[in-house]
């Protein structure tokens, strides 16, 4: 068994994509495009996943239908239509940009030793994974978005006070939320350098996102918890994008985008740091 050479382990500047003379991000764009084209071949497989999404939405439609005593009632400031659309949008992001596959791939690469081959390529491993992931959800998410709009309109009617002009800002917020989620899931997977199986930690993270961010808006929790929840990734990953879709306001948009910028910067720094520390611990079996 050989200890990996530190220089090979990813500390050279070009590995971060900053060292090239021209268009340093081009290689990640190429990776993105190749995965995007590959995934376009399997759109039928994506459509098969609509059944699970529909089951979730149907259940929450019935559940909130039961919880609201009258159509005019407000729960945590949300009408019944807004509450159901909120769940539909968060579930759309969850299903359409499922990061579990990517997180599992990273953990398998590290545990199985495949990382030894990938880290020697002329790209930074974590950015390579993020580029691949973006290529995957670029196909899935729009399909889920169309499906969500169709079944949402059929089940609860159009979203009240929706303004098409705000769609670009909502899309930006959703893209940032998806990327932040992927970065945090990657951070957890990178702990495979230290512990054999990080899946249990992924469960807990997923469940926190699901229960606190996807199923309910932050306003439904006790007031004492709300400031705390706004400091967690949940606020930027699911609440922010869905809140803007169901109840857009310019002030809220600026607040959420600012929080996302901070989270993305901190999360990315953490991801690169964990990776750097992790590869130093890497042992490669010969064979």
């Amino acid at each position: 068994m050989n200890r990996c050479n530190r220089k090979v382990a990813g500390t050279l500047p070009y590995r971060y994509g900053f060292g090239g003379r021209h268009k340093p991000w081009r290689k990640y764009t190429v990776i993105y495009k190749s995965v995007l084209l590959e995934n376009l071949q399997y759109v039928a497989n994506v459509a098969l996943g609509f059944f699970s999404y529909f089951v979730f939405i149907y259940i929450y439609n019935r559940l909130w239908g039961y919880m609201y005593r009258s159509p005019e009632e407000l729960i945590a400031g949300y009408t019944k239509e807004q509450m159901i659309w909120y769940v539909m949008m968060t579930e759309m992001l969850y299903f359409g940009a499922n990061a579990n596959v990517v997180a599992g791939e990273v953990a398998r690469d590290i545990r199985g030793g495949n990382i030894a081959y990938l880290m020697n390529k002329p790209y930074h491993y974590t950015l390579y994974i993020l580029a691949r992931y973006t290529g995957e959800w670029s196909v899935r998410l729009p399909m889920y978005a169309v499906f969500a709009v169709l079944i949402g309109t059929a089940l609860v009617g159009p979203l009240p006070h929706f303004q098409w002009i705000t769609v670009p800002l909502m899309a930006l917020c959703a893209v940032l939320g998806i990327t932040i989620n992927a970065v945090f899931k990657l951070c957890i997977s990178l702990f495979s350098f230290w512990i054999e199986d990080t899946t249990p930690f992924q469960w807990i993270y997923n469940k926190l996102i699901l229960v606190v961010g996807i199923l309910f808006p932050v306003e439904i929790f006790p007031e004492i918890l709300q400031p705390l929840l706004k400091l967690t990734p949940i606020y930027t990953v699911c609440y922010g994008p869905a809140k803007l879709i169901v109840d857009f306001s310019p002030e809220k948009c600026v607040e959420i985008l600012a929080a996302q910028a901070v989270y993305l910067a901190v999360g990315s720094g953490l991801m690169l740091l964990i990776y750097r520390k992790g590869v130093k611990r890497l042992y490669v079996n010969g064979g």
Binding site: I195, E196, P200, I204, K207, V211
Partner: peptide, 18 residues
């Protein structure tokens, strides 16, 4: 043993979070 226990304990916590 660590992985075994982590899997069991975290699944209990995962279920309980709902």
């Amino acid at each position: 043993k660590v992985t075994f226990l982590t899997n069991v304990v975290f699944m209990v916590l995962n279920d309980a979070s709902i």
